[in-house]
Nucleic acid binder design. Structure first.
Lengths: 215, 215
DNA sequence: TGATGTTTTAAATAAATGATTAAATTTTGT
DNA sequence: ACAAAATTTAATCATTTATTTAAAACATCA
């Protein structure tokens, strides 16, 4: 009896013909897809780019993931979780004060973005192209957070939305603008990373200033 | 003697077969290209999308502009000038104080972006895909501006790069994040524009606070 | 080892898409 | 109105690209 390869897809985790390879073909493809999709976005990446990045035969993409679109959705959901989940966890931490949260966000999120510089533009672009990709629930997690509670009780006169958006703007925008910033005279020689790391210290200070000034 | 239509391209401005149409075919194509390219980016737009948006035969794109890429470069340069030129002119104004410049940027640039909400992500994406598109000279105009001089003389202790980047972040990022913000509970009903307009007043206040606090 | 199941490969297919052609239509100048 | 020039159209071409196929290679285990 003949079974098309696709038939076996659902059982693949139970049976593995080749075991103990350093890294499975499936994972090689996913890793290549992470790199290429986040670097170029869905429309600009060709399945051939991914196969090449993975060093594998083109047909394997469809063997393991059926279509470019299915593979993309998988990667996209990972990346959205990374982008929104990281920040949501930091803003919802129970054991820290408001200003500690600002510090934690500035510190940890900047580190994460420096390691994933393509992430912000990827997420923003793909959500814009297809807003349905993005579940409302996630946005709520940001805006209705422990952080929100704390700021409202300390400074009920400050609009929390503006405050959070300012924080995210100052952290994320420089990463988005990296290709522009880097071409400026002052940044010609790999100064960009140093510049962004400076902001880890400065952002908490700026927000401290805002927080302790009556308007 | 036969001349291929392309031959006539260079003379088109001298001779126009059809005059006084409401809007020329060439301009119809450019306007459609502006809309579609900025909405979807180069890779995701098909020449057929532009023809459809313009309500014209597909072949006319190549008749007037020879290739998708040539048309794109034309639009891209317009859009880059709009994005960088607008801000550079505001930051280099000779007749205004530092804080007036902050106000002018907040006010005018936010207005411009609300009318061109696709502009920031378009510019950032396309520069990232092809940094060569972006001439170093433009970035310099931002960072070495009248604004730079004024801030350095008033507050030599403040890093001008961080200051300008903060200003741009707070103005541009919300527009980039619109598809996310809009899906948040609080913004369900067309509150976004009102929210961004509030920032026209608030950004100058925040920067005033920073500017008048010793660190 | 050989039968069976699984993975990988090279080649083929089909759809999408940028570009071109030649003919038809419209405009212009006389 | 006529001829020449310019524009527009429908059809087609050529290339790129996602996907499928069938056979080969490999792994597992009785």
């Amino acid at each position: 009896m003949f079974f098309h390869p696709y038939f076996w897809l659902k059982f693949r985790s139970h049976k593995m013909a080749k075991k103990n390879k350093d890294i499975s073909t499936e994972e090689k493809i996913k890793e290549a897809a992470r790199i290429v999709f986040t670097r170029k976005g869905f429309a600009a990446t060709r399945t051939r780019d991914i196969a090449e990045e993975a060093g594998l035969n083109l047909a394997l993409l469809n063997y393991y993931f059926r279509s470019k679109e299915k593979l993309f959705h998988l990667i996209m959901e990972e990346k959205f979780e990374q982008f929104f989940g990281t920040i949501a966890r930091l803003l919802n931490d129970e054991g820290s004060s408001l200003e500690e949260k600002v510090q934690a966000v500035a510190n940890d999120y900047i580190d994460m973005l420096l390691q994933n510089p393509d992430l912000p533009i990827f997420v923003l672009s793909e959500i814009k192209n297809n807003p349905g990709l993005f579940s409302d629930r996630i946005a709520g997690k940001l805006m209705t957070s422990k952080f929100y509670e704390q700021l409202s009780s300390i400074r009920p006169d400050i609009n929390v939305f503006h405050f959070i958006l300012n924080l995210l703007s100052m952290i994320i925008f420089p990463i988005l603008a990296e290709p522009i910033i880097t071409r400026t005279e002052a940044f010609k020689s790999g100064e960009f990373k140093k510049f962004v790391l400076e902001r880890k210290k400065m952002i908490p200070i700026w927000f401290h200033t805002i927080l302790h000034t009556e308007v």
